[in-house]
Write a protein that binds this DNA or RNA. Structure first.
Lengths: 145, 145
DNA sequence: TTGCTTGCAAATGATTTGCACTGCT
DNA sequence: AGCAGTGCAAATCATTTGCAAGCAA
């Protein structure tokens, strides 16, 4: 239910001394409805009432408060999605032909193996891991046609 | 030994009807010497004889020929590294404090598990994976000080 | 009122491109 | 001569920012 989502988002923002305004709510709603990371133009298409500069500014606030996460994959536009506190841990399938990005979740067992491997890295090299991202590049079903 | 590296790079470029010029060789040398992905300013520092626009143009050629790979991680500058044909398969440790990127290799067993998981995804969703990238975010030893 | 938010228009800055020149073949 | 490669300067374009007006406490 999206009421929970908005309550959570409002709470996180409040903890950062930020308000949950109409425009910020609109961004969160659009991102939640998409189910995949969106570019800024895509976000504006889904809520034409938003000015571009305000969208960028509000995304910056949401990112700072850990409500939204920004992804960059080489295309012209960055992509935005809800942060992990508000969604499930997942990774990305990136189509090298059309540039769209889809979410995937990996088996929990595999995620544990990865985390264990990263902890080993920490012990060996002194690098302290906080989180990870896996990008799988390839061709999506639509482009395979 | 770097003679092999240059021979390989020259061969790949030739296969793409491209020459292995002095500047392209300088870029490959700089990237091989770094052992970690470099930004364009970092590349120019290492070989001041290079004009910025030429560096960008040659990197584009090298990327097109699969000699170099371009990485984007949200910082101001993209980073460049030798493509996997010329180096080992590896992943990246990204310091969220200073932005530097270091290479890591994961246990072969784990890589196999990952590939198997991605093949499952292919079977399920119709997405055909070609390769993957794992980014581990955290804090590097220097910044932990 | 006081301060945050908004949207327009202008600025910024990484990357790309036009063009004239140099150098290899 | 002919074509690829070079570098300067100018253009491009996603993103950021200045500023004046709107809105909520």
């Amino acid at each position: 239910m999206s009421a929970d989502l908005h309550r959570a988002a409002a709470g996180v923002l409040a903890a950062h001394d930020q308000q949950y305004t109409r425009n910020r709510r609109a961004l969160v709603t659009a991102l939640a409805g998409a189910g995949a990371p969106l570019t800024l133009p895509e976000l504006l298409e889904r809520d034409a009432s938003l000015a571009q500069s305000s969208a960028y500014r509000n995304l910056a606030v949401l990112i700072d408060a850990d409500v939204v996460r920004r992804l960059v994959h080489g295309g012209d536009h960055a992509r935005y999605e809800l942060a992990e506190g508000l969604t499930e841990h997942h990774h990305h399938l990136i189509c090298e032909t059309c540039g769209t990005v889809a979410d995937v979740t990996l088996p929990a067992r595999l995620e544990s193996s990865l985390d264990r491997a990263f902890d080993d890295v920490a012990r060996t090299s002194g690098f302290a891991p906080s989180h990870h991202a896996i990008d799988v590049y390839g061709t999506c079903a639509d482009c395979l046609g």
